[in-house]
Every structure is written in structure tokens, then in C-alpha cells.
Write a protein that binds this DNA or RNA. Structure first.
Lengths: 359, 359
DNA sequence: ATCAAATGTGTGTACCCACACATGCAGGAG
DNA sequence: CTCCTGCATGTGTGGGTACACACATTTGAT
């Protein structure tokens, strides 16, 4: 524990025979400096490898940034959406001395109007940045329009809407997770058996992601089973109501009796798992996300494998990205993928423990 | 971006009708304050929920901390031990403005004397903290003794030595990883087949961890297969030389022809995998760590499953722990477990990508 | 009892480093 | 001679720390 020997603006000033203020103006390119001095100062900065002290800078600037995060509501701490929120809070505590604060807002996954309502609230606060999960495409686009007009930087988390002005997308590489799903299902189901790619969606949901996931899935089979591919069907059910889903599934299974594996492109694998349980069907199922219902069916064997998309890390990363943007002024990459974890019966309990306790 | 409204030491001073200096002395318990004032100040701190500004504090103190990290050498970026190092570097960059710097030292896994030599170098630097992987037990204990005498706080990473004065251990919960291995092997090998727990160690290596891993493994079978357990043998080979290992294995397999699954308690699963490849034996293998050789055999199917112990996160965490200790003066938990990831053929390539590119 | 020294209690302020604004001081134009 | 412009310096701010100092009270010696 010694006194710091870091070089400061004063060191530069001494080296160039000018005052600290002049050095400051060179650094910030505010002009009003004679060419000779400017050169001398720049040389000294180069030579001494000067980097401004972030602490002193933020302290002097005394700025304050508010970032709103905007996720689906979670009912309890087991919920999928409580995990990114946990990551957000965790990261935020480490940044609060930098005058960086986070406010959370939540919308209901079953109610588009709650999204609009909370989005209005966020705009009223007029934050410096916004992180949100654009699960309702139409409403999100309206929100985006407003954010663009006000020049408020925003990041997408968990789901992406392409070709927007967002500073970054933080979430799974959707195509890759589809590809990985293909590989996994391939290991569970032979090439002579039929496969179903099942999209269970509510009307308004962001569909781009599902398309990309499905494409990745198809890519795998096209690449690895070029000569001998299983029959792959695709089905979209436009409801999450159990009776409607069950009716559609029944219709499909009657027409396609040889289905031995199902890939559910989102977190609703539990619906088909329940169907298999009722009818005692021996069909492999893989899906996404450790939501409570999925975990239940993973444990009793009706779901074979779930892919988890590092929800806590997503939360951490989005806060960190905003922090770096405001404090370091560093622009993030447009896409920041997170790890995809394979969860099977054998590691589910360990995985859950760690997601909640550590990180 | 507004001016901050955070409450400062001045606010407290005004509230308690004292000077900022007095508040400071109360906060730091330096005495020389009248009881009434002390109480008033404490009340005000409580009431206004005051938290000192970390930036201003570190700036004013102008302290500088050096932490030495001390790992096995890695030959290339694919190596296991390059991963914690990457985590260390990554975390360190974020803390450098706090006067917090990290110096890395490396020892050879095959040379105890290199450990001693580098340990001496570290002691010469006289750092404020040390993080190291105590893989050589005897040499580590000597190092520990010296650190204790000098009152230098130290943390263990990746491997633990119990009952020491270390501030924390960061790494896998060894018992749990054994338990998990049991669960995994159970899913691969029937209860009528025999199982081998294989310890391939060099003479000087830290043995406590292996014992605990094995114990966790046994616990699983004792718990879950109480009535009908496979025959589980345990074998220790005191060498990592291929010919010696092969000889010992041959001897063992001749006596125990019904072995169908092998659990290797450290990163040396590739040795037995190669043996199986040569002799074309259809025996399941699970082991630890994504070292290059292991990955090779995972890909060609001679290793069925590897457990990865979040190496990058381990590095990040140990730097963060030291930072929190010095800057926040916050004591860590004695044990900080990291997630255990299951790596199979299906997700190895994705896993590797993320370990290297993101985090 | 008296006075100096030691102790207890509290205040004032320079400093950490970067930043921003106000000010000073040339020289040339009007 | 003033006014402006270009260049450079000086100073106050931000939050907290640490040291120097001021003042009051107690202790001890004479």
C-alpha cells in the first residue's frame, strides 16, 4: 500500500512548461493553445503515457445518469425474468458511486397495454438510457420511435429487433441456439424418426427471433445430415391456452404419427410436455429457459433438455454496457452474445443454485 | 444527466451542527468526539442514509495496492490455465483507476522448484495480497507460512487447502462436483456394470481435493442407489507418464473385466481415453476441465462428458474479492463456489467460443 | 493556591486529480 | 486610447481524508 505513482495532468504540465489548465484544454481539444505548446503537451502525454484518472474526472464532472430497465414482470424469484433483474441490481450497486443509477420497470407478458403504460412512465422520467426486452414487436417499435426522437440510447436484451438504432443487443445468438438445438435433438432422435419444430406464440410477439432460431436448427440438419435427414415439420400455434394448444397438437400428431422429437422454439416446452404426459407419449422434447414449469417437466423426464441463455449475465452486461457508454464514452458492439448452457436432469439443481446464490 | 443529489459528509455535518472533520472522525472511529455529538452524527448518518463516496475516498487516500496472482503456466490460449488469467486481466483493467494493479506469476505444473522460485520473487515484491493455486501442497504450505508471518492476505483459487488462514477459496465445490459426476455417470452406465474411480496424480499434488471429490461421488451412489449399487472400485496411479498409466490400467482391467464406466477425478481423463482408443474398449469416461487433450477425446467420443469449473469466472472473482477487501474493506466468504458446467460433444464448440470471446 | 503541562474536544484547511470558468495579459485593429 | 482577439494562467469545485491548530478542561508539581 504505497502512494500512487500514476502520472497526472500536473506531471504533463511540468514537462511541457505550461499550466495544468492548458493541458486540460489540449486533452479536450478546446483550442486556445499555441501550436508549439500543443505539440509539447501532446508529446509529453505520449511519452509519459498519460491516462486521465477516471475517479477524479467523474468526481469533478459530478454528472448523474439514470438508466431505466424494462422487463417482463416476474411473480417470484424462481421466475425467468427475475434473473436478469438480479443481474441488473448486482451490477448497479457497483456503479452507484459513479452517479449511475438504475430504475426498473415491468410489464405483463400477457398484456400489451401494460407495456405501453410503463413505456410512457419511462419517457416521463426522461432517462439517459434505456434497456428493454422488445417482446411485443409493435409496441416496442412505437417506443423505439420515441426514444430515437429524444436521442435516448437504448439496448435490447434477450430478444432482438434487427435494423434498429439500438446501441447493442445483449442476448443469445438466436441462430446459434437453433443450431445447437438441432445438434442436441439429433443426439436424442434417430434420423429415421420424424421431428417437429413447434412455435407456440401469442399474436403480438416478436417473430423475427423465432424465425432465426428455426433457421439455425434447419442449418444444422442441412449441414450434418445432408444425405440422410429426418422428416422435419414445422407448426405454429397462435395461442398459449392449454386447450387450444392441445387441440392443435392432437390434429398434428394424428396426421404425423411418426414424430419422435419436438423442438420448442421458446420457453413453452412445458405445454407439449404436459400433453405427452397425459397421453403417455414417448417423444423427446427440447426447449428454452428455466421457467418453473419447464424445470418440473425436466425433472420428471418429459423434457429432455433445456437451453438456458445466461439470464443473470444478460442483466449484468446490459448495465455494464450503459456504464461504459456514459462513463468511458465507449461504444459497445452491436451484438453481444451470451453463453448458452445445456441443462439436463443431471445438472439442473446445481445450475439453479449457482444462478441464485453466486454471480 | 443531472447534478447528483447524493448526500455528503457536509450534509451530515450541517444536520449535526458540527464540522465535516468531526463527522469524518466518527465515521472512522478515531475518537476525540463528545458523546452527544457522536450520537447526533450517528443519528444523522442513519437518518439520511449516508454512504461515503468511494471515488472521493480513494482519490483522497491515494493508496496503491498490488496483488500478485500465481498460477500454473499456460502454453497457449487454449490451455486451461490461460482462462483464469484472462479473467484476472479483464477484471483488473476495470480497477486500475482505483490504484489497484495485478502482477502475474507462473509456475510449471511439472516442476515444484519453479513454484518455490516464483514464490520467492513474489515475496520480494511484498504485495498487498496474493491469489494462488495451491496445487503443490508442501511448497504451498511453506509459502503460506511466510505470507502469514508478513500478514499478507491470500486467497486460494481452483484448489483448496483446508484449515488455513486464507481469506477465501474460489473454485469448485469439490464435494458437489463429485456428487454431480456420480449423477452423470449413473445416467451413462447401468447399475449392473462396474465403475472405476481413477486418480491419476503426481507425487506432490494436493490430495485433499481428490479425496473430497471421490467422497461426493460415493455420496451420490450411497444416496440414490442405496438398494442396488454398482460395484465401485477406486484406483490411484502415482504418475502421469503414459506407459506407467497404461501398465497400471491394464493390470486393473484384467482383474476387473466388467468395468463399464470410469470417473477420472482430475483433468487427466485423456490418458484413459487414449487407452480405450488403442484397445477399442467401449467404456464411458467422465472427467474434469477443458484441456486440449480432453477436448480432442470428447470430440471423438472416447470421453463422454467433462465438467468445467468456470475458469474465467474464477479469475474475475478472485480479483474482485481482493478489490473489495482493499477498497471496501469487506471480508469475503471463506468459500466462494463457482458454477459447474456440463460439457458434452453437443455443446463443446459453443462453450469454447464464449469462454474466449465474451465474459 | 498557582501555574504549566497534558489531555480532551472541536475547527479549519490543504490535498487528491480533473475540469470549467473567470481572469490576466499580450498585440493588433479601430 | 479603447476594444477586441488569441493565448495562457489562476482558481473554485467535487467528496473525503488527514493533519495542524485552537480552545477548554483536567492533571500534577510546586
Amino acid at each position: 500500500m504505497k502512494r500512487t505513482q500514476k502520472i497526472t495532468i500536473q506531471d504533463i504540465a511540468r514537462h511541457a512548461n505550461v499550466s495544468p489548465g492548458t493541458v486540460d484544454r489540449v486533452i479536450h481539444d478546446r483550442g486556445k493553445v499555441s501550436p508549439e505548446n500543443e505539440q509539447k503537451i501532446k508529446d509529453a502525454i505520449e511519452k509519459l503515457n498519460y491516462n486521465p484518472n477516471l475517479l477524479a474526472r467523474t468526481l469533478a464532472l459530478g454528472k448523474h445518469f439514470t438508466v431505466c430497465v424494462f422487463f417482463p414482470k416476474s411473480i417470484n424469484s424462481q421466475d425467468y425474468w427475475s434473473l436478469p433483474e438480479q443481474g441488473v441490481q448486482q451490477a448497479a450497486t457497483g456503479y452507484k458511486d459513479f452517479g449511475f443509477s438504475v430504475e426498473s420497470f415491468f410489464y405483463s407478458l400477457f398484456d400489451e397495454s401494460s407495456f405501453e403504460e410503463q413505456a410512457r412512465k419511462i419517457l416521463q422520467i426522461n432517462p439517459d438510457g434505456v434497456v428493454f426486452a422488445p417482446l411485443f414487436e409493435k409496441e416496442s417499435l412505437m417506443f423505439i420511435k420515441e426514444l430515437n426522437e429524444r436521442n435516448i440510447p437504448y439496448a435490447f436484451i434477450d430478444a432482438n429487433i434487427p435494423d434498429q438504432n439500438n446501441i447493442t443487443y445483449i442476448g443469445p445468438d438466436t441462430k446459434r441456439s437453433g443450431y445447437m438445438s438441432g445438434k442436441l435433438l439429433h443426439s436424442l432422435v434417430g434420423v429415421d424418426d420424424d421431428i417437429l419444430v413447434l412455435n407456440i406464440v401469442k399474436g403480438m410477439e416478436n417473430s423475427t427471433n423465432l424465425t432465426r432460431i428455426e433457421q439455425g436448427f434447419m442449418d444444422y440438419y442441412a449441414e450434418k445430415c445432408a444425405e440422410r435427414k429426418p422428416k422435419i415439420s414445422s407448426l405454429i400455434i397462435h395461442s398459449t391456452e392449454e386447450d387450444i394448444v392441445f387441440r392443435e397438437i392432437t390434429k398434428f400428431y394424428i396426421k404425423n404419427p411418426n414424430i419422435k422429437g419436438v423442438f420448442v422454439t421458446n420457453s413453452r416446452a412445458h405445454l407439449i410436455a404436459r400433453y405427452h404426459l397425459y397421453h403417455d407419449l414417448n417423444i423427446r422434447v427440447i426447449g428454452f429457459d428455466l421457467v418453473k414449469e419447464n424445470i418440473e417437466y425436466l425433472n420428471n423426464g418429459r423434457i429432455d433438455c433445456l437451453i438456458s441463455q445466461s439470464p443473470v449475465q444478460q442483466g449484468i452486461k446490459c448495465v455494464k454496457t450503459m456504464f461504459d457508454l456514459f462513463i468511458y464514452n465507449s461504444k459497445p458492439q452491436k451484438i453481444q452474445s451470451v453463453p448458452l448452457d445445456i441443462i439436463i436432469k443431471e445438472n439442473i439443481d446445481f445450475y439453479m443454485t449457482f444462478q441464485l446464490e453466486t454471480n
